[in-house]
Design a protein around this nucleic acid. Structure first.
Lengths: 104, 104
DNA sequence: GCTTGACCTCGAGCGCGCTCGAGCTCCCAG
DNA sequence: CTGGGAGCTCGAGCGCGCTCGAGGTCAAGC
């Protein structure tokens, strides 16, 4: 709940309000939220996400920049996956060798 | 440099000192450092890393716990890779469709 | 002997992304 | 009509992992 409000503060979401001022998350909001979460999980910064969402809200003229952002992000994610893969190999090596004591 | 000292503070490294009190990183230290960096990059917390290194320094009796830690970490890393893979798919989808404007 | 510059210690500060709590408001069940 | 519980706002606070700077020390080159 607090996080949802925080995201809204940050301009990432803009749920409607009901008569009593309470937020109502429509399917679109939920989709956007899922996207935001996914980008966050994959290491996109709030700053970048704010920019991206702002561009999205600004209309089709911003497509090229958004596309560039996605390209950049894809590259970073791919690199991160590489890192993870290597770490996984190391980790599994340690597991396999029952951890060769002296050095970690 | 500052980070190396920080890691040392945290008990992750213990380089020798020369006569003048300056740190000298031996091959073992460098190997440990590389390991630490790899674990950090793959999302292991400083806390966990401190524990792991302490166990390593405590001798072979701690192998089972270290092994368990590596198993846990491997699982988390695998899950993270899954997340990244999904995010990459989403991202590439956005790139491919030239970003279907309205919703981000 | 003297300068110079790298490295030392220690404590404070920072950027990020939430997370929390106090105090208020509003709807709705009974 | 009333009481209670969920949601609201706003500002402050937190945990993590560094990152920085001031001020001191020491070895090496001139």
């Amino acid at each position: 709940m607090h996080t949802l409000r925080y995201y809204e503060d940050q301009g990432l979401l803009r749920p409607d309000r009901d008569v009593g001022g309470r937020r109502t998350y429509r399917p679109d909001d939920l989709r956007r939220l899922r996207f935001v979460r996914q980008m966050r999980r994959s290491g996109m910064s709030m700053q970048a996400l704010r920019r991206y969402v702002a561009l999205s809200d600004a209309g089709p003229a911003t497509v090229p920049e958004r596309q560039q952002m996605m390209l950049d992000h894809a590259a970073r994610v791919a690199a991160d996956m590489q890192d993870l893969a290597e770490a996984l190999a190391t980790t599994r090596h340690k597991i396999r060798t029952y951890d060769g004591h002296p050095e970690p």
